[in-house]
Design a protein around this nucleic acid. Structure first.
Length: 572
RNA sequence: GGCGGUGUAGCUCAGUUGGUUAGAGCAGCGGAAUCAUAAUCCGCGUGUCCGGGGUUCGAGUCCCUGCACCGCCA
């Protein structure tokens, strides 16, 4: 049977992510992983924190901590939030791990062996006061074009002119404000991606059924203008993977580290190795997921990410893998997402705009967020989050349609038959119709989930919930009970069994509520339904259950107004 | 500036390779039911598919153009 390797774009370390970040990669990846596991597939689901680079160093400095300590703390924060959202990673790694150091250095060495790396000098701004080279965007000054006095070294935000740091008038360090700057010559390794253009082009052409968003972005970067550019893969920083070659100093590269965008995707592989280490597994256990010569030929590899990450995953990372000359597993399907907007604007980490993962969990359980975000995931276009929409969707779908179904069935049974699945009676025409609808719905649901069409899957799941209410409405056991209790018993028995089926089908979306439903039905049978009729008789007459607590309390208007006001401004 | 995306019912969005009277959920209106978290179920939509040209027997769906909003520019 096919095994599935799933990776989510790895979140950057410098702070808590907002819901737009969550819905663009980790959450849909989790949905897919949970679904495949429920279907009995072997899954390896890897995520990690992306820890290197200047922003991490600056965030650590601002927090007054050594960067390694800062990253360790923020990793734990992000790990706890991932747990809070029930993200079911097999391993949540760190790009700063020794595994990633070793693999990053390994890839660089193989690329060098293949003649795909060369050394180039460039002139970069060095800040004496900061004791470091400054990335272009960390040099500020007056724009020579428009006179804006806070232009960045890569571009003037005011007139949008692309700049070189040396163009700036009265340049200063954006870190310290120091004007004690000089231009120094520095050498860096470049990955000669341009030589791999043909390979990449052929590889992308060989992909069937990738989302248009994915291939169009890749093709654009391959063919536009001068085509795929070689890129520097090292930086003059302290925090990162040291540039070594097979464990030895790399001549001319002393004191330098690999660029974050070179080592970050390699962490997908390293993270799997970290998983093996954490679980006492041998090398072969992780290599069978990644090396086609060591068992990975039956692996299907699916990546999830926001559209801004697509170029790195369709070009840079594959260039690393292909260029190594080794049979590493490359992505088979790349699911990319548009953006989630917040109440008329963008979610913004830098501006603190929107709802952040910690805030979200502080006001509502994970399932509420998971359901809304996944059922509105920006698959085909950007999507808008509004509190009104969130409130009505969640109340209607979760509380009224699903939660109330569980409530009305279990409470009716308790009142008329006790907290035991009643016996007697048999199925009739309405039951057969229901089973037919559920079977069709299940088939559609599976198709959408298999195709990773998440909104469609969510809509189908909701329709499956609705079918239960439609049945109850038509069967009306509360009326039937008056003169044919046995018939009512059969109806209730079916409806109670439906709760278990709903729990199983809904679990990828709302794992906690699904657990509560299974707990209420006092069953461990979470097997995926293959035959709907059989699945609806899994809990036999005489089986005891308990009426669960209200699964989803409704969001009140007062809460909504309060939250809308609280999260309207800027996070402090 | 270059490139890309989006613009469909009050709201959030679907609309496959162009083909019968443009759909879903929510909201709204009417009704049924009363087991249930005042929940459920049924019925009801004449919307210049952003504007203007064009291709076609036929375009929301392709081409050109204008407008608006948004993103990216390593």
């Amino acid at each position: 049977m096919t095994r599935t390797l799933i990776t989510s774009a790895i979140p950057y370390i410098n702070g808590i992510k907002h819901l737009g970040n969550l819905v663009g990669s980790q959450l849909p990846a989790d949905l897919y992983a949970r679904y495949l596991r429920a279907r009995g597939q072997e899954v390896m689901f890897i995520c990690a924190t992306d820890e290197h680079g200047t922003p991490a160093e600056l965030a650590a400095k601002k927090a007054g901590k050594p960067v390694a300590d800062y990253c360790a703390e923020m990793w734990q924060v992000q790990k706890d939030l991932a747990d809070g959202f029930r993200l079911s990673f097999d391993h949540f790694g760190r790009s700063s791990s020794q595994r990633n150091h070793a693999l990053t250095q390994h890839f660089a060495a193989r690329l060098a062996d293949a003649g795909l790396i060369d050394e180039r000098s460039s002139r970069q701004v060095y800040s004496n006061a900061d004791g470091r080279f400054l990335p272009d965007r960390y040099v500020e000054g007056t724009c020579p074009n428009c006179g804006y006095d806070r232009a960045r070294g890569d571009q003037c935000e005011n007139c949008t002119k692309q700049l070189d740091p040396t163009d700036l008038i009265e340049p200063r360090s954006a870190i310290s404000g120091s004007t004690d700057l000089e231009v120094r010559e520095t050498k860096h390794l470049f990955l000669r991606q341009s030589k791999l253009r043909g390979d990449l082009d052929a590889w992308i052409d060989g992909q069937d059924g990738w989302p248009v968003l994915t291939t169009s972005i890749a093709k654009k970067w391959l063919h536009d203008g001068d085509g795929l550019q070689d890129r520097g893969i090292t930086r003059d920083l302290d925090w990162g993977v040291p540039v070594l070659r097979d464990g030895e100093p790399w001549p001319g590269m002393e004191g330098k580290v690999f660029y974050v965008w070179f080592d970050a995707p390699i962490e997908y592989i390293a993270g799997t190795a970290e998983w093996a280490d954490a679980n006492g597994q041998p090398e072969a256990a992780w290599r069978r997921w990644w090396r086609e010569d060591e068992g990975a030929d039956d692996v299907r590899y699916v990546q999830f990410m926001g559209k801004d990450n697509v170029p790195f995953h369709t070009l840079s990372f594959p260039a690393t893998l292909i260029g190594s000359g080794e049979p590493w597993k490359k992505v088979d399907y790349l699911k990319s997402f548009n953006y989630l907007n917040y109440d008329g604007g963008q979610f913004s980490t830098s501006q603190g705009r929107g709802v952040f993962m910690d805030q979200a969990l502080s006001i509502l359980p994970a399932d509420y967020w998971r359901w809304w975000l996944l059922s509105h995931v920006p698959e085909n276009s950007d999507t808008e989050f509004t509190w009104e929409n969130f409130q009505t969707s969640v109340n209607k779908d979760l509380a009224d349609v699903l939660g109330n179904f569980v409530s009305r069935v279990t409470k009716f049974c308790r009142a008329k038959f006790g907290e035991t699945i009643p016996e007697g009676g048999s199925m009739g025409e309405p039951e057969r119709i229901l089973i037919g609808r559920l079977s069709d719905g299940l088939a559609a649901y599976q198709t959408h989930m298999d195709n990773i069409e998440i909104r469609k899957a969510a809509a189908e799941l909701r329709a499956i919930w609705v079918a239960g209410n439609e049945y109850l409405q038509e069967a009306a056991p509360w009326s039937v009970f008056k003169d044919d209790p046995e018939r009512a018993a059969a109806q209730v028995r079916l409806a109670l069994n439906l709760i278990r089926v709903y729990a199983v089908l809904s679990r990828p979306f709302i794992p906690d509520a699904a657990e509560a439903m299974l707990a209420g039905m006092q069953t461990d049978d979470d097997s995926w339904p293959t035959d709907m009729e059989a699945a609806l008789t899994a809990l036999p007459a005489g089986h005891a259950f308990v009426v669960p607590d209200v699964l989803f309390a409704k969001i009140t208007d007062e809460q909504r107004e309060d939250w809308a006001a609280r999260f309207s401004g800027v996070r402090t």
